[in-house]
């Protein structure tokens, strides 16, 4: 299964939830926000939200800016 993660193609071995993707990236517990296909996926439903082939996933965080 292939997804677009932060603008880049990424192959996932198997079916995965948002929570599993976040964990595989070492981001569990970090202050991040996730969007799939331009819709926010609230933290509370990361576990139950399944990713499907072709999904466009954005994972963002806070950085310095004015």
């Amino acid at each position: 299964m292939q997804i677009q993660l932060n603008g880049e193609a990424r192959t996932l071995e198997a079916e995965a939830s948002v929570a599993q993707l976040v964990e595989s990236l070492g981001l569990t517990g970090r202050r991040i926000a996730v969007e799939v296909n331009e819709e926010i996926v609230p933290r509370s439903v990361h576990g139950e939200t399944r990713l499907t082939d072709g999904d466009r996933v954005e994972i963002v965080h806070a950085i310095g800016g004015g």
Binding site: N6, L25, G26, I59, V60, H61, A62, I63, G64
Partner: peptide, 20 residues
């Protein structure tokens, strides 16, 4: 205090200090 929202750097993020 204002800050920006940007894509996380996939693969380089773990353990790095965060603005927040």
């Amino acid at each position: 205090v204002t800050f920006a929202v940007r894509r996380t750097n996939i693969g380089q993020e773990t353990g790095a200090p965060n603005l927040l």
